[in-house]
């Protein structure tokens, strides 16, 4: 990417762009991962709740557990940007 014809400003701008891209990927991909994981858990949770309402609180907790992956992604993104 960096060739001799580039100015310092150009290099800095490019690095900033790469960081933003990395941060975006970190949040985006973990979001997709969490979604996939929650798909199966969510359908099982809805099934279990349909039969027994008492488990709603518990299955809600189980459903959002994969969200932790997104939080990791978010932390990585923030570390990259700031």
């Amino acid at each position: 990417m960096v060739d001799v014809g580039m100015t310092l400003e150009m290099v800095q701008a490019s690095q900033l762009g790469m960081k933003a891209l990395g941060a975006g990927l970190a949040v985006g991909l973990t979001g997709i991962g969490a979604g996939v994981a929650e798909m199966a858990i969510g359908s099982a949770a809805v099934g279990a709740t349909a039969e027994n309402r008492d488990v709603f609180g518990l299955v809600l907790l189980l459903t959002v557990i994969p969200e932790t992956i997104v939080i990791f992604g978010l932390v990585v993104a923030l570390l990259l940007l700031f």
Partner: peptide
């Protein structure tokens, strides 16, 4: 497959 998971979970609870 989510439909399968939903139905099978309901059966297991029942």
């Amino acid at each position: 497959a989510t439909n399968y998971i939903y139905a099978c979970t309901r059966m297991r609870v029942r």
